[in-house]
């Protein structure tokens, strides 16, 4: 962000090229953050102008995976918003299990997997990890591999542990990872029941039905039109009376299908599908 700036016309050229050549559609991404991601790529790869970035995208197909990785925001933490995770443990999940023996969960936009591990730890502490079928998806192949690997920097683990303590987990956070060569290596048995898949929320089709969808701080990178479209797919991907969770400062108020959900917990942004 330091030296360069980029005009909207150049951003449009980039989204058009990517759409045409790679079939990914970023035209309805929120411009404010998309612009900064592009500037970040230009800085990282030392592209002095938008033209140079466009040329590389045109000429070098292998560069595109890296491009996708940098465009998507992959900053997250375990048990982000600890009060939300308490709500999940104390109310949402017990409610789902009133009527079912199993629970199906979709992490839509799972990034580097912190939320998936948080969920697995929560379920394990509730004694129901083996009853859960979890699917975790992301648009970014590179980050999915990272999520599957479950290696995190020890520096991040300090914050994760603080969140876990605020979440009032039953155990000791250190039980869930070991330190190896300065990295935290997560207990892989936690994600035995997790299926990681590449999936684009924008162009991907509805592929399953779930009791619970977590899509927190993912749609903030979309404009309102796109949020609407994605929310329709989320609605379709939920069983009736299933739950949708979004980020603490996101809202369903403006979306077309808001009336098909009720608010279960406004502070933690937990919604329940009440109409097909």
């Amino acid at each position: 962000m330091d030296r360069q700036d980029i005009e909207i016309s150049d951003l449009r050229r980039i989204t058009e090229l990517v759409k045409e050549q790679y079939r990914y559609d970023f035209t309805n991404y929120a411009m404010s953050s998309f612009r900064r991601r592009i500037l970040r790529i230009m800085e990282l790869y030392k592209f002095g102008s938008a033209d140079l970035l466009i040329k590389r995208l045109k000429d070098d197909k292998s560069f595109f995976d890296e491009f996708i990785s940098e465009i998507t925001v992959n900053v997250t933490e375990m048990f982000r918003d600890p009060s939300f995770w308490r709500e999940l443990r104390d109310n949402v999940i017990p409610n789902i299990l009133l009527n079912h023996n199993t629970i199906s969960i979709w992490h839509a936009g799972c990034s580097s997997g912190e939320e998936v591990f948080s969920m697995a730890i929560l379920l394990k502490e509730m004694g129901i990890l083996n009853k859960a079928k979890i699917i975790a998806t992301d648009i970014d192949k590179v980050i999915l591999d990272k999520a599957k690997l479950g290696h995190y920097s020890m520096k991040n683990m300090e914050l994760n542990e603080k969140n876990y303590i605020r979440f009032e987990g039953k155990g000791s956070f250190k039980d869930y990872f070991t330190e190896q060569n300065g990295k935290a290596v997560m207990d892989k048995t936690l994600i035995d029941n997790v299926s990681f898949r590449e999936h684009d929320l924008v162009q991907g089709v509805v592929f399953n039905k779930f009791d619970l969808i977590l899509c927190r701080n993912v749609m903030i990178y979309f404009n309102q039109n796109l949020q609407n479209e994605v929310l329709k797919k989320h609605h379709e991907s939920l069983f009736k009376y299933g739950y949708l969770v979004i980020g603490s400062k996101e809202s369903l108020i403006w979306c077309e299908i808001a009336n098909k959900f009720i608010v279960v917990n406004n502070e933690e942004k937990v919604y329940k599908k009440i109409k097909d």
Partner: peptide
Amino acid sequence: PANYHLCIELGNTFSLSTE
């Protein structure tokens, strides 16, 4: 808000980011 960047989006809306 806490732990979010607050961005101004074209079209005069806010846009939040966790980058």
